[in-house]
Lab assay of single mutants.
Amino acid sequence: GNAVQEIMIPASKAGLVIGKGGETIKQLQERAGVKMVMIQDGPQNTGADKPLRITGDPYKVQQAKEMVLELIRD
């Protein structure tokens, strides 16, 4: 079955996860074999953390989460 996890991405790092024209998030999805969606909560909310929703095989979702956390670590 499918697992769904959401991680909060600091607004300052959201661009890093998505990448230029969505390149990075696309590569992450391909590498991890999961679906990732950045939940954009309207323009008034630009400074707030953005939830990144990861959907897929539970094991792969976990892997994907680690990859993203690695990416946004300072």
Rank of each mutant, 00 (worst) to 15 (best):
M36S: 02
L71Y: 04
K60N: 14
D74R: 07
D57N: 07
G33C: 05
P58D: 14
D57C: 07
P51R: 13
G56M: 00
K26D: 06
A14C: 14
D74G: 13
K65I: 10
K65E: 06
K26W: 04
G19C: 02
E23T: 15
N2Y: 05
A3L: 15
D49H: 12
Q29D: 01
G47L: 08
P43W: 12
L71K: 13
D57S: 08
D57G: 04
K65Y: 06
T55F: 09
K35L: 06
G56C: 00
Q27Y: 05
A64R: 00
D41L: 07
R31S: 13
K65C: 06
E30G: 06
V61S: 02
I54L: 08
I9Y: 00
P10T: 02
K13I: 12
D57H: 11
Q40D: 13
R73G: 15
M38C: 04
M67N: 08
L16T: 09
D41Y: 05
K20G: 06
V4Q: 14
K50E: 04
A14I: 15
E23C: 12
V61R: 01
R31E: 13
I39D: 06
P51D: 03
I7Y: 01
E30Q: 10
I72E: 03
G22Q: 08
I7L: 11
K35S: 06
I7G: 00
P10H: 02
K50R: 13
E23P: 02
I7F: 04
P51Q: 06
V17L: 13
G42C: 10
L71I: 14
G42T: 11
G15W: 13
A32N: 14
I54F: 04
P58T: 13
T55P: 00
I72D: 02
E6V: 11
E6H: 07
L71N: 03
Q29C: 04
L52E: 00
I54G: 00
D49P: 12
L71C: 10
R53W: 04
G33S: 05
N45A: 12
D74T: 08
M67G: 04
K26Q: 11
G42I: 09
A48L: 11
Q40I: 05
Q44H: 15
G15H: 12
L69I: 06
G1H: 04
M38K: 02
E70A: 10
K65Q: 10
V17D: 02
Q5R: 14
E70Q: 08
L52N: 01
G56V: 00
Q63N: 06
M8V: 03
Y59W: 14
Q44E: 09
G22M: 06
Q63S: 09
E6W: 07
M67L: 09
I18P: 03
E6T: 12
M36R: 01
K20M: 06
Q40S: 10
D41Q: 13
Q5T: 14
S12L: 06
G33P: 01
Q5N: 07
A3H: 10
M8F: 06
V4N: 15
R73P: 04
G42P: 09
Q40H: 05
V17C: 03
I39K: 13
R31D: 11
A64E: 01
K60A: 10
G15S: 10
A3K: 15
A11S: 10
I18D: 05
I39N: 14
I54T: 01
E23N: 11
Y59L: 14
M38L: 15
D49C: 09
Q5K: 14
R53F: 06
K35Q: 14
D57L: 06
G56T: 00
M36F: 04
M67P: 02
D74Y: 04
E70I: 02
L69G: 12
T55Q: 12
P10M: 01
G22A: 13
E23K: 15
Q44A: 12
T24M: 13
E30F: 06
L52T: 00
K20H: 10
Y59V: 11
P10G: 02
G22N: 07
A48K: 13
L28C: 02
K26T: 08
L69W: 08
Q5D: 14
T55D: 06
K65D: 02
Q63H: 08
I54W: 00
M36P: 01
G1D: 08
L71D: 02
V4R: 09
Q63L: 13
N45Y: 07
E30L: 11
D74Q: 09
Q62R: 09
L16C: 05
M38E: 04
L69E: 14
G42D: 08
V37Q: 11
S12K: 14
P43F: 08
A3M: 15
Q62V: 10
S12D: 13
T24Q: 12
E70C: 06
E70L: 04
K20E: 12
L69S: 12
P10V: 00
S12I: 11
I39A: 10
D57T: 11
T55C: 09
K50Y: 14
G15E: 15
Q63Y: 11
T24F: 06
M36W: 00
V4L: 09
I9C: 02
A32P: 01
G56F: 00
R31C: 07
L16S: 06
T46M: 11
A11T: 08
Y59R: 14
K35N: 14
L16M: 12
I72Q: 03
T24S: 08
G19D: 04
R73T: 15
K26L: 07
G33A: 04
K13G: 03
A48M: 14
I54P: 00
A32D: 02
R73Y: 09
R53N: 03
Q29F: 01
P58Q: 08
Q62G: 11
E23Y: 08
E70M: 05
L52C: 04
I18R: 06
Q27M: 13
Y59P: 14
R53V: 12
G22L: 05
M67I: 05
E30R: 14
I18S: 07
L69K: 11
P43I: 12
K26M: 06
S12V: 09
D57R: 07
M38F: 15
K65M: 08
I9V: 14
G56R: 00
K60D: 04
V17I: 09
N45C: 12
L52P: 00
G19K: 02
K20R: 08
P51G: 10
M36D: 01
M38N: 02
A11M: 07
R53A: 05
A32Y: 12
A11C: 10
L16G: 04
E6F: 04
K50H: 10
I9G: 00
E6Q: 14
G47A: 12
M36T: 01
M36H: 00
R53C: 06
R31M: 07
E6I: 06
I39R: 13
I25N: 02
G42V: 08
A32I: 10
D41A: 08
R31Q: 14
M8A: 05
Q40L: 08
I25V: 05
Q5H: 06
A64G: 09
K20L: 09
K20F: 08
I72A: 04
G22W: 06
I18L: 13
G56A: 00
K65V: 10
T24A: 08
I7K: 01
L16P: 02
Q29T: 03
P51N: 10
V4E: 15
I54A: 01
G56I: 00
K60T: 03
M36Y: 01
Q40V: 09
G22R: 06
E23W: 07
G42A: 11
P58C: 06
V61L: 03
V37E: 13
I9Q: 01
P10Y: 00
G15A: 05
M38Q: 03
R73M: 13
K60G: 07
A32E: 04
V37K: 15
M8R: 08
E66W: 04
V34R: 00
M38S: 04
I72T: 08
I18E: 11
K13Y: 07
T46V: 13
G21V: 04
S12R: 11
A11K: 12
Q40Y: 10
E6N: 05
I25A: 03
P43Y: 13
A11H: 05
M67H: 08
K35V: 05
I18V: 12
A11P: 14
G19I: 00
K60L: 08
A3N: 15
P43M: 12
G21I: 03
